[in-house]
Simulated scan of single mutants.
Amino acid sequence: MSSAFEANYGFRRSDVRLGNWRDAPWNVWAFRHVSELIPTARIAASAGLVEEALVNAEGLTRETLFIDGVKTIMADILAKTSTDAMVVMKSGRIVADFHAANFDLETRHILFSASKSVTAIMAGILQGDGAIDVEQVVAHYVPELESSAYADARIRDLFDMQISLDFEETYLDPRGDFARYRRAGLLEPSVAGDTPDTLLAFLSSLRRGANEHGNGPFRYASPNSDVLGLVIERASGQRFADFVTTRLWQPLGAKRDAYVTVDAAGSARTGGGICMTPRDLARVGEMMRLGGIANGRRILSQDWVADTVNNGSAEAWAQSKSVEWLPNGRYRSKWYQTGEASKAFFALGIHGQWLYVDPTAEMVIAKFSSQPVPVSNDMKRLNLALFDALASIV
């Protein structure tokens, strides 16, 4: 006789392991239950907050959309992009909650690299406090990185992925530095005869690439955002999860606890380990849409938000491979800009995690997915087309 778990997911809980949790079909469950696989630290919501009732998305999912000139319905696009949940906000109000099977208002999902955008917000808060100088070098805050590639890199270089680093983000390579990076974050099982580094030890071992920091093409590298997490901890004097709790999560009015994965030393995986509900992710986007304000309270400086959503080097982007899927894009402080008339900007994570903000349409979309392939330019383009179509009907 199959268990209720097996009936819901089509496999047994015991089938999901650290070695396969990002692979289909196991990722559908694993992305919603990361804390059962990897150590985490709690990001606490305020006690006693009550979540509003679910807003039925059935009518919206039946809407006819034209994606690249092809007539379709939204439900088909959600299925094609392996959507686990999607929340749509319009003018500050939740207008639709889409949940796949076995997903509810309490379910927390991993953001993967959309975590970087949240991490940047925390650094922006510290910049507003005067505790971080973006022109200062990394080793000023984290002296343990004095002998690494990061020693003389500026905080601004971390923000904008302008670090010269001998490192390749090869998601499907089971060997090499990227696999070692994952093991340091306890995201993969250890290899026989190998003792995983801590994140700090791994970051300390990275060497500079051929170029100088701060110029050349946009160079995406997740370790840069984990370095920024260490800077945040040193500058704030708090563990990352505690700092997020007091300066973002509770002032934001988040309704559910979030959490972040940690390594063996307790360092947060700020480059990709944050997990939260889709509604709370949407609330982060709404705070950015409003220029750093939530619940009538300023959380982040308006100047920092304006710089993040309006600046960034179009030249650096045009010189990168990312121009293939976002031709007019830019990247600033770990947020992407579409470069389109809508002035839309977004956070993005592998396997289809999105926080999309369209200021012109006053729309925010939080979307979690379990796409089988970590990175697909076709899926990115399809999701962006979906969001653009939604802006005209919500």
Rank of each mutant, 00 (worst) to 15 (best):
L300H: 07
D388F: 11
S320D: 02
F346H: 00
S301F: 07
N295I: 09
Y356C: 01
T360P: 08
D378C: 05
T360V: 10
S370I: 07
K367C: 11
V375M: 15
I365N: 12
I365T: 14
A341L: 04
N328I: 00
A341H: 07
A314G: 09
P359F: 05
E315T: 11
L348G: 03
G329C: 02
R297A: 10
H351E: 11
F346L: 00
G296Y: 15
M363W: 13
V323E: 08
A306T: 14
L390I: 11
G349M: 03
H351D: 13
V364Q: 12
P359H: 13
W325S: 00
A344H: 03
P359G: 02
G352S: 14
R330T: 04
W335Q: 06
T308N: 09
S376G: 03
R381M: 06
Q302P: 08
F387I: 01
S320K: 00
G352Q: 05
I299C: 04
S342W: 01
N310P: 06
S342Y: 03
K367L: 14
L355M: 07
S369Y: 12
R330H: 10
P372K: 04
V364I: 09
L390A: 08
R330C: 07
P327I: 03
G312L: 11
E340S: 13
V305C: 10
W354N: 06
A314E: 07
G349T: 14
Q353R: 11
M363G: 11
W304H: 00
I299F: 09
A361L: 12
N310S: 14
V323H: 04
R298L: 12
Q353T: 15
S301T: 13
Q353M: 09
Q353P: 12
Y356V: 03
P327S: 13
A389C: 06
A389R: 03
G296N: 06
S369A: 15
